[in-house]
Design a protein around this nucleic acid. Structure first.
Length: 732
RNA sequence: GCGCGGUUAGCUCAGUUGGUAGAGCAACCCGUUUACACCGGGAAGGUCGUAGGUUCGAGUCCUACACCGCGCACCA
């Protein structure tokens, strides 16, 4: 009897040792599994790429959840004898990382422009490297069986080649274009961001109604109104039936008389306010669309620092917040202010990463055209020609080549794509993939490599971080090279992530893979819910100490306990309230397994495991019961019903194996009646349960396994799953 | 406004082809005979949000509504 079994299970001393054992075995790497005869060379491949955590700091509970679910999938597949790859990596996360470093520098009183691009990037890279090291270390603490030999970074050289290759191809196909379009400008971050990176916040503010010639118009933003010379109303609105579309009127406005043109359009909501509005095409998406429709003039009012331009005359150079009341005062003095609603609730767009208030602007930026038909080219497969990127994104989900779990997210996905506008991919930040475009006078050059002649300057901008993330399933496998990995492991089997990045990431991966590889990036999308605190709050950083740190939990209760708490009662798409009490309970379960194993090992010391004795009748029944359970859970594992499986195994181990079979066997052994059968059932059930529990509780099961006598000792992580997929038909 | 999800035992949640309601935790009673008190045994606890409908039969399917949460759009 091993002495450590005499004490309660101690995850702290066990887990680090076990992970080392796994890592040293090399079995996280599928090539080594084949080499060592664990996996058959022609075994079915099974691959998952890890959603790369941002190199902005530590892992949080959301990361822990994804690591747990994916590790269960991977360990199960590996035990099933599949050629199993789980590929790790981290994300440079462009804006998120840059703004984090900027904030840190700010504390030292340093601005990024003081350092210059090169020096600043060095600082960011140092920060990213440190974060990376922390993250890798944390992944290991989580027990993640990732193949570290294949680790990737979204901004390393190989991925940069993939990005340049992708950009060039899209540019040549006319799917990437540069143009003046209205974009979301973040004055705080001094960069453009995509529609998906804006967050709307409700803000209470003032809502002013002004006299505008013969009309009354309302606005929450008087400071944008200088250039308003179009007044819009609904064509059906009887109140304004005497006014004609295109009619011009002269009226007194902020800085004197102006000429305004009447526009009639259905976008107007007759019920809202007076049913009349003026438009500011340069600083509003909707107004821009209207101006495009009627070919109206567009004038810039606010510069990129949020200050008023000369068009504002006496207000020029003022910050918009400062100017607002002054402009209202002026209009009031001219008798043009009608009323002020002090309790108006406005929804303000803010930047996800910097919190800056978005100021829409018309700017020269790079875009991906999602509606343009892909041109037919010699080297382009006919499948894509004539289809738009939108269609390429819709197709595989429509055809169920890609299945989204839970399926109701498919509707959300379709809805997003149908409303999708061109994707703005250029960013005015330094940290990221530089746009592979060079300029010389009026000439533009786009290629994978810079032009050879002198005199060309590269575009200053970098790419949206999601551009490189979109390539993740295949850039990690070596694309654009035609590697063996790419051939073997792509499309990947499952993409497991939070439903909050369905649009940001999943849609973009489908787009890129469909376009560049003509194949889907993954077969199944498994979306987990958000982790919440016990009282239902979002587990965000702003919670500070109240947020649960997964690593603290591991130290306290062990990784296996945290895993079960994250799996049991958690179904795809639903949020999970993580509760320390539950984790404590599952820690007890780990100890229960430990203690039961002690008993079994003690009692079966003299059992000849290569020649197991016959079972008596009641033990035969127990054997059948467990066989059936394993059959059931094997099927459920393939259906991703991990919550059910974990619960069933937990329940069987505790309340059937421990409470009934062990107690019964105790009596038999004590009374010396059917002793051999008792020992056999104890041994066989324990070994079977350890295997079945291993994907869920890898540490405690592996540790016990090392003490179990077996005929051909190898790590539990590569033991065959207790139900062979060859033998039994469990697939439906 | 459009769409999605939730509403099941005190709490947290499972419940996949419709067939007399489940788990964990908490609470209650009993019990420490050597795997484990980080334990065992026992009992208790729900008209499955509301109102209709389909059906021999509905937590499960359909319709409407209520409340909670989320997403998208608009907010001049």
């Amino acid at each position: 009897m091993d002495e450590k079994l005499l004490k309660p299970y101690d995850p702290k001393t066990t887990e680090e040792k076990i992970y080392k054992l796994w890592e040293e075995s090399g079995f996280f790497n599928p090539d080594i599994c084949i080499e060592k005869g664990i996996t058959k060379p022609d075994a079915e491949p099974f691959s998952i790429v890890l959603p790369p955590p941002n190199v902005t700091g530590n892992l949080h509970t959301g990361h822990a959840l994804m690591l747990v679910i994916q590790d269960i999938m991977i360990r199960h597949a590996r035990m099933q004898g599949k050629n199993t790859l789980w590929l790790p990596g981290t994300d440079h996360a462009a804006i998120a990382t840059q703004s984090k470093v900027e904030k840190l520098l700010e504390k030292e009183g340093i601005r990024k422009n003081d350092l210059g691009r090169e020096e600043f990037l060095k600082r960011v890279e140092k920060f990213a490297q440190d974060s990376h090291d922390t993250i890798v270390n944390q992944c290991k603490k989580m027990g993640a069986s990732l193949d570290w030999s294949r680790e990737a970074f979204t901004l390393d050289e190989k991925r940069n080649l993939a990005v340049r290759t992708a950009f060039k191809k899209m540019y040549d196909d006319g799917l990437i274009y540069r143009g003046h379009r209205i974009v979301n400008w973040d004055p705080k971050g001094q960069t453009v961001i995509s529609d998906d990176e804006t967050i709307y916040e409700e803000k209470k503010g003032k809502f002013y109604t002004f006299k505008y010639g013969p009309f009354e118009i309302a606005t929450a933003r008087p400071e944008t109104k200088f250039g308003d010379k179009y007044v819009v109303m609904h064509p059906e609105d009887k109140r304004y039936k005497d006014w004609q579309h295109g009619q011009k009127i002269t009226l007194e406005w902020i800085n004197g008389p102006i000429e305004a043109t009447i526009i009639k359009d259905e976008v107007i909501d007759m019920e809202f306010g007076t049913g009349v509005m003026t438009i500011t095409p340069w600083h509003s998406h909707e107004d821009f669309a209207l101006a495009e429709k009627y070919k109206l003039d567009k004038e810039q009012i606010i510069d990129k620092y949020g200050k008023l331009l000369p068009i504002a005359q006496e207000f020029a150079g003022m910050k918009i917040n400062e100017a607002r009341e002054k402009i209202v005062d002026k209009l009031k003095s001219k008798g043009l202010l009608i009323s002020v609603d002090e309790n108006y609730v406005n929804r303000v767009a803010t930047a996800e990463r910097t919190g800056g208030m978005i100021e829409p602007q018309i700017m020269l930026q790079w875009f991906i055209d999602v509606n343009k038909k892909i041109p037919s080219r010699n080297n382009l497969p006919t499948r894509q020609a004539g289809k738009s990127l939108k269609e390429l994104m819709l197709e595989p989900v429509n055809d169920e080549k890609i299945k989204i779990l839970p399926s109701h997210f498919e509707k959300v996905y379709f809805n997003w794509i149908n409303n999708l506008r061109d994707w703005c991919i250029s960013r005015q930040i330094w940290y990221g993939h530089r746009i592979p475009v060079w300029y010389k006078g009026d000439q533009i050059y786009c290629d994978i490599n810079p032009p050879k002649e002198d005199g060309w300057t590269q575009d200053e901008d970098t790419l949206d971080t999601w551009f490189s993330s979109g390539l993740w399933t295949f850039s990690t496998l070596g694309w654009p090279e035609k590697t063996k990995d790419l051939q073997k492991y792509h499309p990947t089997n499952i993409l497991e992530t939070g439903h909050d990045i369905l649009f940001f990431w999943i849609a973009r991966m489908i787009l890129m893979s469909q376009y560049l590889l003509e194949e889907i990036p993954f077969k199944t999308v498994y979306l987990h819910g958000m982790i919440r605190t016990a009282d239902g709050k979002k587990m965000s950083k702003s919670l500070g100490d109240k947020a649960i740190d997964p690593l603290d939990i591991i130290v306290k209760y062990g990784n296996d306990a945290l895993r079960l708490a994250m799996i049991i009662g958690n179904t795809p798409g639903n949020d999970l309230k993580l509760n320390e009490n539950d984790i404590r309970g599952y820690g007890k379960f780990a100890n229960k397994i430990w203690n039961a194993s002690r008993f079994v090992l003690e009692q079966t010391k003299d059992l000849d495991i290569n020649n197991l004795p016959e079972l008596d009748e009641e033990d035969k029944t127990s054997k059948e019961e467990l066989d059936n359970l394993i059959k059931e859970v094997s099927k459920e594992m393939n259906e991703f019903r991990y919550s059910i499986v974990a619960e069933k195994l937990y329940h069987y181990f505790w309340h059937t194996f421990a409470d009934i079979i062990i107690e019964r066997s105790k009596k038999k052994i004590l009374e010396n009646k059917n002793t051999e059968s008792a020992k056999t059932i104890l041994y066989t059930q324990l070994t079977t349960l350890l295997k079945a529990l291993h994907p869920f509780m890898p540490f405690v099961t592996e540790e016990i396994w090392s003490l179990v006598p077996t005929s051909n000792k190898q790590l539990l992580m590569v033991e065959p799953w207790p139900l062979s997929i060859d033998k039994d038909n469990i697939n439906d």
